[in-house]
Simulated scan of single mutants.
Amino acid sequence: MIRDRGTIKWTAMMLPEHVQKIRDWKQESYAEAPRELTEWELEELQLTIDQAVTQQKIVTLTVWESIKYVQWTGLIQALNPDKQELTLETITKIKHIPIHTIHAARLDEESYEE
């Protein structure tokens, strides 16, 4: 019985740049497309973000980055309407997130206390 290992058998003869391009191509081919939010979802998202800012609550944001959804948890420090972004302070860093990439927001039960 013949066992075909696909592209694995050819990677030894490929340049590292080619192997990386093939990995990138496979990742892009399996990537999901960002879905459009309904008006109701956008309104709920806005209310959740406003509540997180006014009450200084920790929020988990689901953000579309490159080819997948990523979750960031932290405290919203500022909303910048000119740049259309918000500033989120996580445990390790401060992240500037464009508002149009946010797809969901969830408040955590803990509140920020200094």
Rank of each mutant, 00 (worst) to 15 (best):
V53R: 13
E89G: 00
W40N: 15
G74E: 01
V70L: 09
I8Y: 12
I102F: 00
W40P: 10
I99Y: 11
W25I: 04
Q84A: 10
I22S: 09
T101K: 05
D108K: 13
V70I: 13
G74H: 04
K57G: 05
D24Y: 03
T62C: 07
I67A: 09
T73Y: 03
I58A: 05
E43Y: 13
E113Q: 11
P16V: 00
L107C: 00
E39T: 12
T11Y: 11
I99V: 09
K57V: 03
Q55W: 10
T87I: 03
L37R: 12
A31Y: 01
I22G: 06
S29W: 14
L37V: 02
T62H: 04
I102V: 00
V19T: 01
T92C: 02
K9D: 07
I49R: 13
I67D: 12
V19H: 05
T48Y: 10
W72M: 02
A105K: 03
L61S: 07
H100W: 01
P34S: 02
I99Q: 12
Q71T: 05
E43F: 12
I99R: 11
L37C: 06
W40F: 11
I58N: 05
I94A: 02
I94Q: 07
I58G: 04
L107R: 00
M13I: 09
Q20T: 03
L88T: 00
I97A: 01
W64P: 11
Q71W: 02
T87N: 02
I22P: 13
L47W: 14
A105C: 02
T11H: 14
V53A: 09
T48I: 10
E32V: 08
E114A: 07
R5M: 09
Q51G: 04
L42H: 11
K95V: 08
E110I: 04
Q84S: 08
L37H: 02
L61K: 04
H18F: 08
P34E: 02
E85G: 05
H100K: 06
Q56I: 03
W72T: 01
I102G: 00
T73W: 05
D4R: 06
M13A: 15
Q84T: 07
L47E: 15
Y112F: 07
L15T: 01
Y69D: 06
A78E: 14
D24N: 12
P16N: 03
I8C: 10
E44P: 11
